[in-house]
Design a protein around this nucleic acid. Structure first.
Lengths: 340, 340
DNA sequence: TTGTAGGCGTTATCAA
DNA sequence: TTGATAACGCCTACAA
């Protein structure tokens, strides 16, 4: 057993006194190779510890069996659930994953895209950063017909399929639920961003108000980064309002939970004084008291669907450009935070 | 601009009437190439949309600039924080990440290891699965001197550096804290696993009891998978105990939080009746009421340290085999759940 | 400072 | 059914 040298098909061929071509064919289960030869080759390969060289193969084949993934942040329960779904599908189909995070910066997203491109990924899955406004950094992918797919944080582009939920509708239902529970002054806490997930939710919120004859008041929309800390700040801001709201719809559970806690500390009763609805169905939503009414966001499923769709395209089983948008089902989960 | 053909250094060389060798050198900023030529080459490369071919390069260089990462699960806040740290360092050093999850199954871990090996990762970062008991599946890495590093869920091996916290000591401090708060009957909830993180915590728990003259009672140790659901079940089990405990130390915040909630629903006052300490400092710990006393686990930092250490070794800046274990600092964060 | 040429390990084409 | 051989794109002695 040679310790410092890789075994190649040449070694196998030489030892068996056959050609590398035959070895190569046998290793790919080409039926044209006789059963006997094939077995001999497999056995020897096993014995000598042969492993195929991906680079040599990729160099020839012009494909990498690798899928690139770019996400805004890795460290959230929500995003990691999506990635788990992606990994599950990709791995079962023999694809590797290269993952990189844009840290919510358009600039870093550009760099990540370039890296992915240079690494010759077969396809790319992207959830866009807060502030990345144009898609020029993906043009190299379009030019080379490398399939691209957006998930969660998406954008319109003729060559790209988007996988997401109907954020407008989900927000509409969340807000309507509050209205039906008797709320008349509903605050919406969201992120200042042009990303679909936020603009759509804002739209759904507005629409629900409108359809129920409630006025839309720009001062009732609060913008922050939706972090836990931001939730506490938001609580303080709410308390400082001339007239307190009676409902709050937050675009993210973590922020909603800490906001609730901040208010409770100041003696506000939830849901009696102010009802709450969050978004995502994060683990915190069943820990905070009262448990948080929220939108169930199918993260794992979204990852699976995105990966499967891309891979189908890669295998020629489906044409990605034919699909514009895949909407996953989301639903309102009603818990105590809104039951008043 | 050719649309369907890759630009190679040959194309550049031909167009400029120089040799590929010069082009290759210029592209790597070899100082031996004259400034003028180098500029010409860079400009043309830019203009023609040249991108280096990683496979060809890897095929020559026998390295991939890729680090493999195997983790038990991707979808936890805790693990994704570590990965974010790894990504940050790896990316800044020009390394790519291939990530795969073992889903807590030794069998899948074996497969993942093989995939990583075949992908010729330059190094491997691993957090072991619950039940993977031997390290045979990494022997191919050892044979080829591919550096391997364990983090969080580690195991002893002469060729592997481990990055973790002092779980025994952290658990000791957590338990001691409960004792100092007057707890005499302390339950420990953990996972049934031989992984260091659990055995060490159990040991720390035992030691703290012992040093404070409290008896260790095997029936006070409850084993489950530390999930949120398991926390509710644990609450029921605690309520069914002949004598209620007055303190609970849980090896994971998520499980601790839901256990607290389960108990509270049945009228148990926390911390007055039963004090709680968790582990990890997960976001839920500041959402659950009362806020959970816990061990702050430096996940992001752990990811950074693990990645940096591996890369230093790869760059020849440090010898990985010389280091046995890197212990990160963890600390007890005292919140209301234990203040009685 | 630049050029020549061989080789990294595979696969596909053509011929036998 | 098998074999010989030319790419795939890059890097690096060695030579000039």
């Amino acid at each position: 057993m040679n310790k410092d040298k890789e075994v190649t098909i040449y070694d196998l061929a030489e030892k068996l006194n056959i050609s590398v071509a035959t070895v190569s064919r046998a290793l790919k289960d080409d039926p044209v190779v006789s059963k006997k030869t094939r077995k001999k080759i497999y056995d020897l390969a096993e014995e000598m510890g042969y492993r195929s060289n991906h680079f040599a193969r990729n160099l020839r084949n012009q494909r990498t069996d690798t899928i690139g993934v770019i996400v805004p942040r890795l460290n959230s329960y929500f995003m990691s659930t999506i990635i788990a779904g992606i990994e599950q599908v990709a791995n079962s189909q023999g694809y590797n994953l290269i993952i990189s995070q844009s840290s919510e910066s358009a600039e870093k997203e550009v760099r990540s895209a370039r890296t992915m491109f240079n690494n010759r990924v077969d396809g790319l899955l992207v959830s866009l950063a807060y502030d990345s406004d144009n898609l020029d950094h993906f043009s190299s992918f379009f030019k080379k017909d490398i399939p691209l797919l957006f998930f969660d944080r998406v954008a319109e582009h003729e060559n790209v399929t988007s996988v997401c939920i109907d954020n407008r509708r989900a927000a509409f239902e969340a807000t309507r639920h509050l209205v039906e529970r008797g709320c008349k002054r509903i605050v919406h806490i969201t992120a200042r961003s042009n990303r679909n997930v936020y603009t759509d939710r804002l739209q759904g919120y507005r629409q629900a108000l409108q359809e129920h004859g409630l006025p839309f008041d720009e001062s009732m929309v609060m913008y922050n980064n939706l972090s836990q800390e931001a939730g506490y700040t938001a609580a303080a801001e709410i308390l400082a309002m001339p007239v307190l709201p009676d409902g709050v719809f937050v675009a993210n559970d973590n922020c909603a939970a800490s906001c609730m806690i901040g208010l409770k500390k100041k003696g506000i009763a939830i849901p009696a004084d102010i009802a709450f609805v969050g978004f995502n169905n994060d683990p915190v939503s069943t820990v905070v008291e009262p448990n948080l009414t929220t939108i169930n966001y199918p993260g794992y499923e979204m990852g699976e669907v995105a990966a499967r769709h891309l891979i189908n395209h890669l295998n020629g089983a489906a044409l990605i450009t034919a699909t514009n948008t895949i909407l996953l089902r989301s639903e309102l989960i009603i818990r105590e935070s809104s039951l008043r």
